[in-house]
Computed example of a mutant assay.
Amino acid sequence: MADHLSQSFEKSAMTNEEKRNHKSELKKQFVAFGLMIFLTFLAFAAVATDFVPRSLAIPFILILAIVQFALQLLFFMHMKDKDHAWVNVFMITGIFITLPTIVALMLLIGVTKF
């Protein structure tokens, strides 16, 4: 009864164009992942080897973090895709609510030292 499950499935529901798009997307995700690993290594190396002066270390690492954040949003959260409009709206709204909240809390903690 289950003999047909051991046989390979020759036909695919995807067209050749969909297969090419899928391979292209997979390549882009691997490149983005490799770039994010490189940026992480660069941040660790910059701090560990004093490659970046102390006064520029935090801005340098924040810039690397922003680039990584953008790559993650575009490639792994699929914000570059056209059919995710509502997801994009909610994520951008969340960012615009979160950033002022974090800044306000940092200012509050910085002003009232415990």
Rank of each mutant, 00 (worst) to 15 (best):
M1F: 06
M1K: 06
A2W: 04
D3S: 13
D3L: 13
L5E: 07
L5A: 05
S6M: 08
Q7Y: 05
E10N: 05
E10R: 07
E10P: 01
S12H: 01
S12R: 00
S12K: 00
A13K: 10
N16R: 03
N16S: 06
R20K: 14
R20G: 03
N21A: 14
H22Y: 13
K23G: 07
L26R: 09
L26E: 10
K27W: 04
K27L: 02
K28V: 04
K28R: 12
K28I: 04
Q29P: 00
F30D: 08
A32D: 03
A32H: 01
A32R: 00
G34L: 09
G34T: 02
L35M: 13
L35T: 14
I37H: 01
L39R: 04
L39G: 02
T40K: 06
T40H: 06
L42G: 04
A43K: 06
A43C: 10
A43S: 15
V47H: 14
T49F: 14
F51Q: 08
R54N: 12
R54T: 08
S55Q: 01
S55K: 05
L56I: 02
P59K: 14
I61E: 08
L62T: 05
L62H: 02
L62F: 04
L64I: 14
Q68S: 13
Q68K: 15
Q68V: 07
F69L: 15
A70F: 10
L71I: 09
L73M: 13
L74P: 00
F76E: 01
F76P: 04
F76S: 01
M77L: 14
D83C: 00
H84M: 15
H84W: 08
W86K: 15
V89L: 07
F90P: 00
M91W: 05
T93Y: 08
I95M: 12
F96Y: 14
F96S: 15
I97T: 00
P100G: 14
I102T: 10
I102C: 09
A104M: 09
A104P: 00
L105T: 03
L108E: 05
L108W: 06
L108S: 08
L108V: 02
I109V: 09
G110P: 02
T112K: 12
T112N: 13
K113S: 12
K113H: 12
K113R: 14
F114N: 07
